[in-house]
Amino acid sequence: MKILVAVKRVIDYNVKIRVKADHSDVDLTNVKMAMNPFCEIAVEEAVRLKESGEVTEIVVVTVGPKAAQEQLRTALALGADRAIHVETDARVDSLAVAKLLKSVIDDEQPGLTILGKQAIDTDNNQTGQMLAALTGLGQGTFASKVDVKDGTVDVTREIDGGLQTVSLTLPAVVTTDLRLNEPRYAKLPDIMKAKKKPLDTKTPEELGVDIASWVSLVQVETPAERKGGIKVGSVDELVDKLKNEAKVIA
């Protein structure tokens, strides 16, 4: 079975972001970028499925600017076999990404497609669900366990009340939650080898996908900063403040 993994280049999760002075967006100049953490988990899951013999080939795909090839190389170093870069400098929203990924799926016909549940820049949490809709496939979102069987996949999902397991007919779309696995680090020899692995570049036009969006970003603001408060010296002082100053307990 072939597996397709979608990865996104985003701001490193440790970076404290700044809003541009003109409030048009977040300022990404000279900011450390990385693979979206949920996408790292998606790559790791694909690699484990390949190691267990369930998967024969891992194709990794990203939509984004030229620099996003760095994240494809990272995925190749981690164990993906081949990469597809859909190159665009435009702001591509989740629906357009899902359309582009659908056209890659039409081409590649993977048995399973794995995405992160959420990109930590837009915090959308949409693309996998949209891709499943467009391809007419079942969806196993927020996965903490993926169990590939013959013609189906059991996905254990992290839901608000606990865990839910669904069985999906393959092919299917899965999105990863934090506890699905712990991603490994790429080793230096693998990073060297990854440079020679195949990486194809395509454009949205070549894929015949219109990436126009009907949603515009009007402005971006910094939320009201919380002022740090005071340190109290004892439990009794804390309880007194909560009762008599903040009045949040009786």
């Binding site: 972001i17 837009t122 009907w214 009007v218 910094t222």
Partner: peptide, 16 residues
């Protein structure tokens, strides 16, 4: 809506 873990708030307009 919040973006970047709520470290920025985006105003978005939809013509869908």
């Amino acid at each position: 809506r919040p973006i970047y873990a709520g470290n920025a708030i985006a105003t978005v307009q939809s013509s869908d």
